Simulated assay, not measured.
Amino acid sequence: MRDADGRPLLTWRELGGYIRQLPARARTRLAMGQTDGVWALQEHLQALTVDELRIANWQRSNEGVKESKQTKPPKPMARPGVGRGHDKNSPERIAKRKAALTRAADRRRALAAGEIR
């Protein structure tokens, strides 16, 4: 497809491809809620250091204490994009997939009927 001046138009698929290839810290990705790459290696290493120090302090504080009386171990710091547990077959994802398939079928029907070109 082309615009009035004959330039090729960008399809939604091409636009999605360009967005997926943006750098992790691009404002467009952040505006879309994609926080996977907000932290660089340095931030992850600092969080790991904090986690290790918390575990070491927990171990020292529970030294010589019966296992049944020990406090719970500390949870690791939350990191953006890590451990979110996206399940490919979660109900939300299944619903989104069904909606996309319905939209695609509706579009194919409209194209076949000549409603859109």
Rank of each mutant, 00 (worst) to 15 (best):
G16S: 13
A110T: 00
G83T: 01
E67Q: 13
G81K: 04
W58A: 06
L30N: 04
G83H: 03
G83W: 03
V38I: 15
V50K: 10
R107L: 15
T102P: 00
Y18K: 10
A56M: 07
A31F: 06
M32E: 06
L15K: 07
L9T: 14
G6C: 06
T35Q: 11
A99G: 10
D87E: 10
V50M: 05
I19K: 07
H86K: 11
E63G: 04
L48K: 11
T102S: 09
G6I: 03
A110Q: 13
N89Q: 12
N89D: 14
K69W: 03
N89F: 08
D106V: 01
T35M: 14
P73F: 08
K96F: 01
A112H: 02
P80M: 07
R20N: 15
G114P: 04
M32L: 15
D106N: 12
L22S: 07
R29W: 05
S61C: 02
R27G: 05
R84P: 02
Q42G: 08
A24K: 06
R25A: 12
R93G: 09
E63R: 15
G16C: 06
V65I: 15
G6A: 08
A24W: 02
G16P: 01
N62Q: 10
R13T: 14
K96L: 12
P23Y: 03
L22Q: 05
R60H: 09
S90Y: 02
G64D: 08
N62K: 06
R79K: 08
V65G: 03
G6N: 12
E92C: 01
W58P: 07
T11Y: 00
R2H: 09
E43I: 03
A110N: 09
T71E: 10
D106G: 00
R7E: 12
A113S: 08
R84Q: 12
A112T: 03
S90W: 01
S61F: 02
R60C: 05
L45Y: 05
R7S: 08
Y18C: 11
P80F: 10
W12P: 11
